[in-house]
Design a protein around this nucleic acid. Structure first.
Lengths: 231, 231
DNA sequence: CCATCATTCAATCGAATGCTTGAATGTCGT
DNA sequence: ACGACATTCAAGCATTCGATTGAATGATGG
């Protein structure tokens, strides 16, 4: 028979276990990447700059806390978030940290200060214009992430292909680029390139998960649908 | 000049710092108590069963992560949550853990199995009836917690005083008791007592923070207002 | 069946964490 | 100013964690 004290201890231990899994910068980074799209171990290792063994180890901590799940196909293991609520939890932690820890904002400003043409735009009205379809919206992440979920109306133009596809973009309309979220540099670089080429470009700081957290829908799928839509 | 990699590392380190502060059962317990009402170190130590020194140490970890704030009045230090978003974060972690970790549910069932008259009630319809004011709603936490925030319409009947005040409660109406949340035993014990005395009693599993997380208002203050309302 | 590759396991080491104990700080009432 | 009290600090100890290395597992392809 469990005493109330024991019961509470057991339960809190489980909650703490989940939190502990989030208590490492590398694991936060892994979850952030996985909230964009499922990925294999090697890909995650490369994107985070860790060794494969170390990455695998962290992934298993996350799996132990039931924050990610793994699918094995042949000798490849693909990890993915255990559910959208995990992404929501990440967003929540970000918000708490942003609003309380002054240095997050300080470092961000310092980082942005070094980049050209990155004056900050009013994000609220930007979101409104995007929702009304009044701008051209670019998803500059790798296409696999686009396919795993993107903002409705966005077209996939991975940063690596942006240069090639410049001519297909309108010069008389505002172009908005977004990527993985406020701490991802892809959209910044895209806006830098676009501005240099004379486009009117702005950056949306939200990523797909922030968009979802606002309560807006997220579009799935990709290549097939896109090709069909063009035809 | 910060490289994107360095920038991301620094930012993630801060997020992880917040999560790490949540990564201990004792600290979760402290935050849970503080989400009910501000408290002094000694009170927290007593409620959690920790030594005062240890409690103070944990509180400072939480303060280092900007999750709690402290007010010093004389030689007393009162800690409180840094903001409602911290409570929301706690609720979010609970939800993730509940939905993913089977053992949380298992342990809860086992715990409830040992208690009499604790068949689970449909919480959704209960919430509706409470919102419409169709039931008598008891807040059985200590009165200081009631005063720091309670569900509108609830009356404060601390568990310790319930016996004395039985005669003031209606027998022909359903009585709903709530306390700190799903893992707090106060409301269970209240319902047990009420049932034994022939009342129609039910337990609301939500605490004030869950109620707030549903988007409903929370009433503040206490003794003065209640007396005024009765007069 | 062997070589290759993706992933995991196991062992190790230094660093960080959690709890205890006893002393130090700082405030209040007398 | 002194003693009582709430809280914090500091040192010590066992435990855990994070990263590295090298080996093991298990599937694939010739």
């Amino acid at each position: 028979m469990l005493s109330p004290r024991q019961y509470k201890d057991v339960i809190c231990e489980h909650f703490a276990h989940v939190a502990k899994a989030l208590g490492s910068a590398k694991r936060i980074e892994l979850l952030d990447l996985l909230s964009q799209s499922p990925r294999r171990v090697e890909g995650l290792a490369q994107l985070t700059g860790m060794s494969v063994a170390n990455t695998s180890q962290h992934l298993q901590v996350l799996r132990g806390a039931a924050l990610v799940e793994a699918d094995k196909a042949g000798s490849f293991v693909t990890y993915r978030l255990a559910g959208p609520d995990v992404a929501a939890l990440l967003v929540e932690i970000r918000h708490v940290a942003e609003s309380r820890i002054a240095e997050v904002d300080r470092v961000t400003r310092r980082f942005l200060a070094g980049r050209e043409g990155m004056e900050r735009v009013d994000q609220e009205t930007l979101v409104d214009r995007i929702r009304r379809g009044e701008v051209t919206l670019l998803d500059v992440r790798p296409s696999e992430e686009y396919e795993a979920g993107h903002i409705p109306g966005a077209i996939s133009v991975p940063l690596s292909e942006l240069k090639k596809r410049l001519r297909t973009l309108p010069k008389d309309e505002v172009i908005v680029a977004y990527c993985r979220g406020p701490y991802c540099v892809l959209a910044m670089e895209a806006v830098g390139l676009l501005s240099a080429k004379g486009f009117q470009a702005a950056r949306l700081e939200d990523g797909v998960q922030d968009w979802r957290a606002r309560g807006y829908a997220v579009a799935l799928g990709g290549a097939l649908q896109r090709r069909a839509a063009r035809a």
